[in-house]
Simulated scan of single mutants.
Amino acid sequence: MRMDLVLELKDVPGQLVSVLDPISGLGTNLVTVIHQRDMKNKRGMIPVQITLEGERENLNKVIEKFKQQSISILEMDGNVQKEKISTILIGHIVDNDIRDTMDKINELDGALVSGFDIKLDGEDKSSALINIEADFGKKGLIFDRVKQIASEKDLLMINEV
């Protein structure tokens, strides 16, 4: 059986090798690797496409190993596993505890704040662009939670279109 994956890896020396190394030890074969460093995203991450071949049980072990290594699987056999979500908050973001805001978003199952860019304007209101990596299909749930957090903290929320 074959499985096609798109992984998201850090652009650091040895990252690709650390991902590929356990594959044969788990009873699978590496068929193809497409590693394009020029496709780096804003967070410095690179999509790597791999095709594996092996028994279903062994392929599942590889997937589990990737999860243990905190490797993001963006696609599995053409099915999107993760999606990127962006939202903007406007208000007294710093005064309302940035860490608490991020922690409340990260508490959601399948969601992780992957970027938090803030623009300060002295003592006036500030704005923050929040990038969230989420399991596919959870966009509505995440927007609802961020909207609730924004309401609790008297912040204006602007969602992506």
Rank of each mutant, 00 (worst) to 15 (best):
N58G: 04
S151I: 04
Q69Y: 11
L30T: 08
K84H: 08
I85Y: 00
Q81K: 15
I46S: 04
I132E: 00
I50L: 10
K147W: 00
V161F: 05
T32C: 05
S114Y: 02
D38M: 10
K125S: 11
D109V: 09
S72Q: 02
G44Q: 06
R99I: 10
N58F: 02
D4F: 09
E123A: 10
G137F: 02
I71E: 03
L52Y: 10
V113A: 01
L9F: 05
G44M: 04
H92R: 15
L156S: 10
G122P: 12
K138M: 01
I105H: 00
L9Y: 04
K119T: 13
D121G: 14
V19C: 06
V113M: 01
S18D: 13
A134S: 08
R99V: 14
D121E: 12
E107G: 01
P13R: 11
I98E: 03
I130V: 15
V12E: 09
Q68I: 09
N96S: 15
F116G: 04
K67E: 14
G14V: 05
K119M: 13
E83V: 12
K84Y: 00
G44D: 06
E8T: 01
L108K: 02
K125R: 13
E75W: 15
I142N: 00
F66P: 09
D154A: 13
N106P: 07
L108W: 02
G122W: 06
G137H: 09
V33Y: 09
E64L: 13
T28D: 00
V33H: 08
K119E: 12
M45R: 14
M76E: 15
V6K: 11
H92K: 15
L26Y: 08
R145P: 00
S126F: 07
V17K: 11
G110H: 01
M76R: 15
N60A: 14
M45Y: 11
N29E: 12
E75K: 14
I23P: 10
K138I: 02
V113K: 06
